[in-house]
Design a binder for these strands. Structure first.
Lengths: 143, 143
DNA sequence: TTTTTAGTTCTTTTTTTGCAGAACTAAAAA
DNA sequence: TTTTTAGTTCTGCAAAAAAAGAACTAAAAA
């Protein structure tokens, strides 16, 4: 599981922390529980937790009369993060559009057309996914 | 542009080669043109080209009476590679399902429900995207 | 057949990344 | 106020990744 997250571009430690929090019972754990379970240094755990928080993948809760933070996977923001992936599609699309501007005087129309089709596809798919997200929101909002 | 591809999990050299081939006029270049433009070693270029070919991102053409290979971005396979990304969504979904099996006796129903919703969302979205891909194929097949 | 050359593979060097460990900080507790 | 402690930041090292350079290969050309 950690390896899967690693492949998504996370560091090994982030992958392990994420996997641990997903499987933990209760599903929130404090700094030292994480550190002890993973047998890692404080700095490695601290950095992993901070990065995962920056990315909105995890957050933490506290309990009154206890100064420790209890870190947990943030299911809500995970759903939201799909939007981020769609934005990535948009970034690629914009890059390819810029390429096409650069290539406007090219004699190789077939290649340009190939790129144009990719741009069109990205526009098609991201627009449709936008609609799907709305659909999902409604579905969940009503039920 | 190279940096964008790097963020997608490619090595810097692969990113640069890809960016160069996208902008090149003509849109196909031989080994030495690539090497000279990027001011890189033969081995770095060779490895980058081979990996990009393995991933189907580029391919090459040849001209009779010329033994050099002319490498170019493969627009068609780029479109196909979207399917690979959907498969990744499926992998995550399967992992989360396994997590839920592991968590079946958990007392934290709210967390489990959160995970279930993520799984449902992934199922919803990947199914719908499958349909969108068909739709796109038809649209392009007819026109 | 010998030579050339397009590209590969192997070895080494450089750069980057990930992590440990210790020093540190700031807020809470005593 | 002093002491704890939850967590951060800094320094340094080890492992991995990226790239260089040289030695090599195999097919084409001469």
């Amino acid at each position: 599981m950690g390896i899967f997250f690693e492949k998504q571009g996370h560091s090994p430690m982030k992958g392990r922390v994420l996997a641990f929090l997903l499987l933990a019972e209760p599903p929130y754990k404090d700094f030292y529980e994480i550190q002890e379970f993973l047998q890692a240094s404080k700095s490695a755990v601290s950095n992993a937790l901070n990065h995962l928080q920056d990315e909105g993948i995890i957050d933490y809760i506290t309990f009154s009369g206890d100064r420790r933070r209890y870190f947990r996977v943030n299911c809500n923001s995970w759903l939201k993060s799909i939007r981020g992936k769609i934005d990535q599609v948009t970034t690629l699309k914009d890059l390819l559009k810029a390429v096409l501007v650069e290539r406007q005087d090219s004699k190789h129309l077939d290649f340009n057309e190939g790129l144009e089709e990719i741009v069109e596809f990205h526009e098609f798919i991201s627009e449709k996914i936008e609609i799907l997200l709305e659909e999902w929101k409604n579905k969940k909002g009503i039920s």
